[in-house]
Write a protein that binds this DNA or RNA. Structure first.
Length: 328
DNA sequence: AGCACA
């Protein structure tokens, strides 16, 4: 049959077409935040956790809408706001859980927000949560853009369904099932106005079902190749390949089995694609890796560049002295 | 922390 020609995008945002995620432990159906996650926040009640991130590095002419449109894709996104301290914009974004806030923070960390103004985002957890006014934005007379708070798109808290078949969500930001942290208690199709596109593939890709913060102290300069470490000993190569090969810009990957550490290298078409995945899958946990989150770094030796650059090439013909063997 | 292949 025609089961083979699956459009890459369709796979990506086809989270639960025929294989819905394992139902969360059947609690009361309306509990808002039930993370059955690894992190042991058990000491603190999840209610007073800071789940807001603080964003600096935005260009001075940033529009609140710009930030919103970036953030609204991130899982758990609830609201955001830009305040100006002098002319320095400070962004705040509220997420549904602390963990999703951390995930978002990591995903945005060092992101190039605008190339022309060379703005690079820096993110931290906020000191306190963004306060959401209930009801509608109050002051419509002043129309002070810098202080507006909006509740954002409704994509995220309703899952990964795309707003439109023609406009798939930027999977390069969050990966196919990227940071699918706690399966939120939602009905994938409930309340969603459009019937989902008929999904040909059940669940070809074992997706990361979790995400764990990962300390990535050292990294190498950005390049088109990612180095993936911390994969756990029993990592399944198929699963790895399935995850990465659907990422936008993917070219090839090489899995390297070492004694205890399996690592892998993934080449992308360009640095940008690599960077997106670097952020989107950092700390992602895929089933066969156990409970550890993968560590993603830029490769020391990108594909297509030889490791040994001992022969520093002078500009051809720059000095008349030709080396011995230069014919051909 | 573990970085190969062209």
């Amino acid at each position: 049959m025609a089961g083979t020609g699956i459009h890459p995008y369709l796979q990506q945002w086809a989270p639960a077409a025929t294989a819905p995620p394992p139902p969360p432990p059947s609690v009361a159906s309306t509990v808002p935040l039930p993370p059955p996650i690894v992190i042991d926040n058990t000491a603190r009640s999840a209610s007073d956790e800071v789940r807001t991130i603080f964003i600096t590095g935005l260009p001075e002419d940033v529009k609140e809408r710009e930030l919103l449109n970036l953030l609204r894709w991130l899982p758990g996104y609830e609201a955001s706001q830009v305040n100006f301290k002098g002319e320095k914009p400070m962004g705040f974004a509220l997420f549904s859980t602390a963990q999703l806030a951390i995930a978002a923070k990591d995903a945005l960390q060092e992101m190039v927000f605008d190339v022309e103004s060379k703005s690079v985002l820096h993110t931290e957890m906020a000191k306190k949560n963004l306060f959401i006014k209930r009801g509608i934005v109050a002051d419509s007379s002043t129309y002070d853009q810098s202080k507006r708070l909006r509740t954002g798109g409704d994509y995220t808290h309703s899952g990964y369904t795309s707003p439109s078949p023609f406009h798939p969500p930027p999977a390069h930001i969050w990966g196919p099932h990227g940071f699918m942290a706690p399966p939120p208690p939602y009905d994938p199709y409930g309340g969603y106005p459009v019937p989902p596109v008929p999904m040909p593939a059940p669940s070809p890709v074992p997706a990361p079902n979790n995400y764990v913060p990962v300390q990535n102290a050292k990294d190498n300069p950005p390049c088109n190749t990612l180095f993936i470490g911390n994969l756990g000993e029993n990592i399944n190569e198929e699963e790895l390949r399935g995850l990465f090969s659907v990422q936008p810009g993917f070219k090839q990957m090489k899995i390297l089995r070492q004694e205890r550490h399996t690592v892998c290298f993934i080449e992308f078409e360009d640095i940008n694609s690599a960077t997106n995945v670097h952020h989107s899958l950092q700390g992602a946990v895929i089933p066969s890796s156990g409970s550890v989150g993968m560590r993603i770094q830029y490769s020391k030796n990108p594909f297509g560049k030889r490791k040994d650059a001992s022969h520093h090439v002078a500009a051809p013909g720059s000095n008349g002295a030709l080396p011995a063997m230069t014919y051909q």
